[in-house]
Simulated scan of single mutants.
Amino acid sequence: MDVQRTYGIPTLEFRPNNPAPQGPIEEDLLLESRNPGMTALLDMVERAAAGDSTILLTGESGTGKDLLARQIHRWSPRRRGPFIVINCTTLAEHLLEDELFGHVRGSFTGAINDKPGRLEAGNGGTVLFDEIAELPTSLQIKLLRFVQDRCLERIGSNRTLRVDVRVIVASNRNLGAEIAAGRFREDLYYRLNVITFTLPPLRERTQDILPLADWMLKRMSLATARPDFRLSPDAAAALISYRWPGNLRELHNALKRAADLARTETITLDDLPDSVIHRTAAMSAPAPRGTRLKDFEREQILRALADCPTLGEAAATLGINVTTLWRKRRLYGIA
Rank of each mutant, 00 (worst) to 15 (best):
P200Y: 09
R219M: 10
D114T: 06
T196C: 08
R303N: 14
I334Y: 06
E13T: 13
T89R: 14
A235W: 14
H103A: 00
F184C: 03
L161A: 12
R329E: 08
F14Y: 15
A180D: 15
P116W: 06
P201W: 13
C88E: 10
T6P: 02
N123T: 12
P227Q: 01
P10E: 00
A181T: 04
I267P: 07
E13M: 10
A238G: 11
R330Y: 01
C88K: 02
N87G: 10
A285T: 08
R183N: 13
L152A: 09
K294I: 11
A177Q: 14
W75I: 07
R70K: 08
F83W: 11
L255G: 09
L272Y: 01
K328M: 09
T126Q: 08
Y189K: 12
H252G: 08
A282F: 02
R329S: 06
E186A: 08
R330E: 11
V194C: 04
A236K: 11
A49D: 10
G246Q: 06
R34I: 06
F129V: 01
E60Y: 09
E153T: 10
G182M: 00
R327C: 06
N247R: 01
R191Y: 08
R219F: 09
A335R: 10
K294E: 12
P211C: 04
L95F: 14
T266W: 14
R185L: 13
G290C: 12
G333E: 08
E297H: 09
M38K: 15
F83T: 08
I320C: 13
R80E: 15
G59F: 05
T160G: 06
G106R: 07
S221F: 11
R289I: 08
E27C: 01
G64W: 06
R226I: 05
E178F: 03
I72R: 04
A306R: 15
D149T: 06
R79M: 02
D52Y: 03
